[in-house]
Nucleic acid binder design. Structure first.
Length: 611
DNA sequence: GCAAGGTC
């Protein structure tokens, strides 16, 4: 008998289905000479400090550097404190007895670093010695699964991948546990002041933006606006320059040739520049883009959206939610027309779904190379029935985005008119000529509305128009807005782009800070620690958060670059580089940061005492 | 009491 172990039940079920295994047992499915079982993500975690004899939070324990890390069954919080998760223990027992019976293990955890770690931690914890081979697929279509099983890889091919995953895991423990205790102890052990490779740079981003915004001194500037008339329609043009003083602007306004100055038609059209602009449809959603949209449109937190989406996934209405890819492969694309056909009667999207069935689908979101562990979020096409309003809203975002993504380009005409009347004035206009994908939700770019005349009348270069009104506008420069969950998620994904070193930027390009599965919980952690709070949609640091930021802001642990450096080294390890060197560096760094923080928390001591 | 990672 062979055992196939997947990362989660849904994948094990899919694999069993393809094999025709149907005998459902407790914790696995049996049939055709195979048993298909599963984990629930990480079943095992690195044991906490007390398991190595580091009791209490004491300076003399620091730095805590276990010579050999231990694994412990995942814990949950109950009213009786933190206990082993009984469901996890039960599943481990199932896996153990299957491992004992089998002749071979087929590893079908997700095709990535953490998937490898999930399996290896189980394998080593159970002290299993059975041979294993690796299934490496990135979509769960029948075709991909069959192909994957024909091409099982030797388990040892992924030893270096495990090494890199193992280093990631232990390094996060070493830096996080030690830094957290060091800062908490030096601040008087009054509260948990957690620090970590991901949460601390995230806190730093929120704090530095907050401080920047608070210290922002707006600059006042002036513009001159004129209103022009072309036959029955009016439009507005704004001075091409901004002016520092009202006097300057008034001087410019005085030169405008309007009716009051005796000019019937004093606005000369100096140029008309019309361009067709093609806007491709947006990509399909990954978790992060969906969380951003749900935060913008409905005000849901990242955590709420993840919960709702998980719920839809468990109801088999959407595909796997914790994906970081916005693409699908050709195998999934082949199922899209059928999927779209399920929505031709949909009250919101039916018209566009029907349109798509009769037209060539846009393939912008189809790229097998950009599908990583999972593909983009799609509806499954199962009948949805009645959903609660929040589930309906998120489901509609998934369905609507699918319709958009395969739709045609939106074609706009943008027009820039320069009017000369004493000085130069500019009018911008945008007209949608063919809505394409924009017909799905029918909402337009929010950003530009302010400055743009939606439509401009047809004018020709050289003609003169009457100026019917003029005014000086007082404006001020605005600070960057505080982070909302939507903009923070975006920043976590792309913080690599702010990094100057090219190699580090490359190392972070694929990952950013945190992962799709963890970003919501990072925000929740910062809130739980009372480092930040929510004010309307904004994320605002507390006094405590700002004080912690002040202590760590110039240290490596507060920089996103730290993740970039690690990712670069972890990738080298995956390619075969020494694990020992990296571990030595991490140990050194742990010692340094621990010493620094033990000496740094005195200011925090007073702040926490007051509170 | 603590990290970051995965998932119900």
């Amino acid at each position: 008998m062979k055992i196939v172990i997947a990362e989660k039940p849904s994948v094990a079920r899919e694999l069993a289905k393809v094999f025709g295994a149907t005998n459902k047992k407790a914790g696995y499915i049996e049939g055709k000479g195979y048993s298909f079982t599963w984990a629930f993500g990480h079943l095992l975690q690195l044991a906490p400090p007390q398991d190595y004899g580091f009791y209490g939070w004491k300076q003399q324990n620091l730095p805590m550097l276990p010579t050999k890390f231990k694994l412990a069954v995942r814990k949950i919080k109950t009213k009786d404190g933190i206990v082993e998760d009984p469901a996890v223990r039960k599943q481990l027992n199932v896996i153990k007895s299957l491992f004992d019976e089998c002749t071979e293990i087929i590893v079908a955890t997700d095709a990535g670093r953490e998937g490898e770690l999930i399996f290896r931690y189980i394998y080593y914890y159970l002290k299993c010695k059975k041979p294993f081979r690796r299934l490496w697929i990135s979509s769960q279509t029948d075709q991909a699964i069959k192909e994957g099983f024909r091409n099982l890889k030797p388990g040892s091919d992924y030893d270096t991948l495990f090494n890199s995953a193992h280093c990631r895991s232990e390094s996060d423990w070493l830096v996080g546990m030690n830094a957290t205790q060091a800062l908490s102890i030096s601040a008087g052990n009054r509260a948990v002041l957690s620090l970590g490779r991901v949460q601390t740079p995230t806190l730093a981003m929120i704090c530095s933006r907050y401080i920047e915004t608070k210290n922002f001194v707006p600059e006042i500037f002036f513009q001159v606006a004129i209103q022009l008339q072309k036959e029955e329609s009016f439009f507005r043009a704004i001075s091409a320059k901004n002016y520092k003083t009202r006097e300057e602007a008034e001087t410019i306004m005085a030169k405008v040739l309007d009716a009051a100055t005796g000019n019937e038609k004093g606005g000369l059209i100096a140029s008309v520049d019309a361009k067709a602009k093609k806007e491709p449809p947006p990509l399909l959603h990954d978790l992060s883009s969906l969380q951003q949209e749900a935060n913008k449109k409905k005000g849901y937190t990242a955590d709420q959206t993840l919960g709702i989406l998980q719920n839809l996934y468990e109801s088999k209405l959407v595909t796997y939610p914790r994906t970081g890819s916005r693409y699908i492969g050709d195998d999934v694309f082949a199922t899209v027309p059928d999927l779209i056909s399920k929505f031709t009667d949909h009250p919101l999207f039916g018209k566009d779904a029907t349109f798509l069935l009769n037209n060539k689908l846009n393939k912008r979101s189809v790229n097998a190379k950009k599908v990583t562990d999972h593909h983009a979020v799609l509806p499954t096409g199962e009948y949805a029935g009645h959903l609660s309003s929040d589930r309906q809203a998120v489901y509609d975002m998934v369905v609507g985005r699918m319709i958009e993504a395969f739709h045609q380009e939106c074609i706009k005409e943008t027009t820039k008119i320069i009017v000369s009347s004493g000085s130069d004035f500019v009018a911008n206009g945008t007209v949608i000529q063919s809505a394409g994908w924009r017909s799905v939700f029918n909402d337009n770019d929010e950003e530009k509305k302010d400055e743009d005349n939606a439509t401009l009348p047809k004018v020709i270069k050289g003609e003169s128009l009457a100026i019917t009104n003029k005014a000086v506008l007082e404006k001020q420069t605005k600070p960057k807005p505080l982070y909302t969950e939507a903009t923070l998620l975006k920043a976590l994904e792309t913080c690599g782009k702010d990094i100057e070193d090219e190699e580090l930027r490359y190392a972070m390009k694929e990952s950013g800070l945190g992962t799709p599965a963890t970003r919501a919980s990072i925000i929740e952690t910062l809130i739980k620690r009372e480092y930040i709070g929510r004010e309307k949609k904004n994320l605002v640091p507390s006094k405590k958060g700002l004080a912690v930021y002040d202590v760590v802001k110039n240290k490596k642990i507060a920089q996103a670059e730290l993740t970039g450096q690690w990712e670069k080294r972890l990738e080298e390890i995956r390619e075969g580089a020494s694990v020992k060197d990296f571990k030595a560096e991490i140990t050194d760094y742990t010692k340094n940061i621990t010493q620094e923080l033990l000496a740094a928390g005195t200011g925090l001591y007073n702040l926490l005492k007051e509170a």
